[in-house]
Design a protein around this nucleic acid. Sequence first.
DNA 1: TGCTTAGGTTACATGGAGGTAACTATTATG
DNA 2: CATAATAGTTACCTCCATGTAACCTAAGCA
Lengths: 151, 151
Amino acid sequence: MDQSLPAQGRLQPLLEDCTITRQILDRVGDKWSVLIIVNLGNGPLRFKELQRRSAGISQRMLSQTLRFLERDGMVWRKATPTVPLTVEYGLTALGDSLLQPLTSLVGWVNSNREEVTSARINYDSRLENAITADGLEETTAPPAAEAIGAE
Amino acid sequence: MDQSLPAQGRLQPLLEDCTITRQILDRVGDKWSVLIIVNLGNGPLRFKELQRRSAGISQRMLSQTLRFLERDGMVWRKATPTVPLTVEYGLTALGDSLLQPLTSLVGWVNSNREEVTSARINYDSRLENAITADGLEETTAPPAAEAIGAE
DNA sequence: TGCTTAGGTTACATGGAGGTAACTATTATG
DNA sequence: CATAATAGTTACCTCCATGTAACCTAAGCA
């Protein structure tokens, strides 16, 4: 779409004043929403199966999140009045189109896990050194005021 | 539909069992993190300026989120011991690389706001009709068991 | 002396997100 | 009659994320 990111300037005002944008972003960025959408990315699933695949989600949150996603037009729901009742969920065209940016975000996370993890270790050990170096006082001095080249 | 997304299958297990992935995803998907990263996308900013541009953020959350992002290696911090103290924040190479998937996600949201909004109106009005249609009882019957074409 | 600035930290209070568990309906089966 | 399965809903409770506001440091200046 925007090969070199000149769109950034246009994103800011939208993030600033647009409540709806923020609202939708919160929803699609939500922990359970992401999990459900990615899980539905391979095709429709029934409630129990979806719960089984979304490790850690409670019945309550699955049901709630599904209703939100259905309301927002990203997921469809199909109930078949069989004996113990069969309900299927799947991605709408809208939900499917979300799958792409979402997948690239999750992909970014997976690609950069190591780097983030080592950044944390690095940061934490610097903090420790800074604390042990000057006793109890003067911790107000920022320990990383130099070496900001960031590679 | 998903011929161009063969990576999905590999994302699921990572989302299921990997605590770190989920943790990082929560961080980069966080409301304030997104705002800060997008705002820093145009270049480094000082604390107050960043706060001014990130409408609605409190000093506390800005400071906290910046510390998290710095710890995760996405943002650098440069303090200059001037008279009232000058601190600049900017994106590291890692943070900059996040800008791309994040921008495409925010772009998706902006492109599909209308559709989501109308989906909500549609859903809510259907609910209303379903409620007024059958008085007080029998609301247990799923109102949308037919017409699932999703368009 | 005390007000201002930048850039925070800390204590305190609270709302709401989310977990747990019980309850619902329906039919088949033992 | 009780139990099981699917697909939820509801009540209840707790804890954490976040907002508010006060406080901190250091220097300048009126």
